[in-house]
Nucleic acid binder design. Structure first.
Lengths: 100, 100
DNA sequence: ACTTACCGTAAGTCATGGCTTACGCAACTC
DNA sequence: GAGTTGCGTAAGCCATGACTTACGGTAAGT
């Protein structure tokens, strides 16, 4: 649950969404991501730290490089959070329909 | 698609998430929401405008009041956006498994 | 060992956006 | 019609956070 809120907060930033979408296609290193973006490499590194804390990516050492990939855990946390609203809003509609 | 990015941007703010969760239980008026929050009524009004632009809520006039309720469209847009990553990351795993 | 490549962290700057107060407008009450 | 309630918008303030440069540390190459 707390994971879902942090994941939503992380994906609230447009740059982080682009980075996340880039990692979805295939795992990449930090510098590789930075070259395709209009921001510096440390900025990408900071974004990746936020995504990692939200359970949206995992990192793995690969020599001097560091490969990042998408972590399904964070995606699933958002999914579970969204599922609440389907049920609740349907109940709200039902309750309203019965009230008249 | 553009709806999904705006919806994610909207739910990136913790206060908007609380407002959104409040509306999920039952439709509410602006002032009613503001009384349960530590911020002013205009602030709530501005948050609702953002949620509305993201397709996450709809509003309806009720006398002098204005009732807001959850709109499934925005929720569904995020869902569709998330679905991409399930497929892509699974493909990435599969491709990596086959490569050795 | 020296150099090069790749990365994370620290410190500082600056803009985005969330919040407030003030205002004007519509709807309901008496 | 005067007063009250409920709401949206405008203007301005201020804190959060995104970004930069600078630095140190590890791994591979020559």
């Amino acid at each position: 649950m707390a994971y879902a809120t942090r994941a939503l907060g992380a994906l609230g930033d447009p740059t982080r969404r682009i980075i996340f979408e880039g990692l979805a296609k295939r795992p990449r290193a930090v510098g590789e991501l930075a070259r395709g973006l209009p921001i510096s490499r440390p900025a990408v590194s900071q974004h990746l730290a936020v995504l990692k804390a939200a359970g949206l990516v995992t990192d793995r050492a690969d020599g001097a490089r560091r490969l990042y990939r998408v972590d399904i855990a964070g995606v699933d946390a958002i999914r579970a959070w969204l599922d609440q609203f389907w049920d609740r809003t349907l109940d709200a509609f039902k309750a309203e329909a019965e009230s008249h």
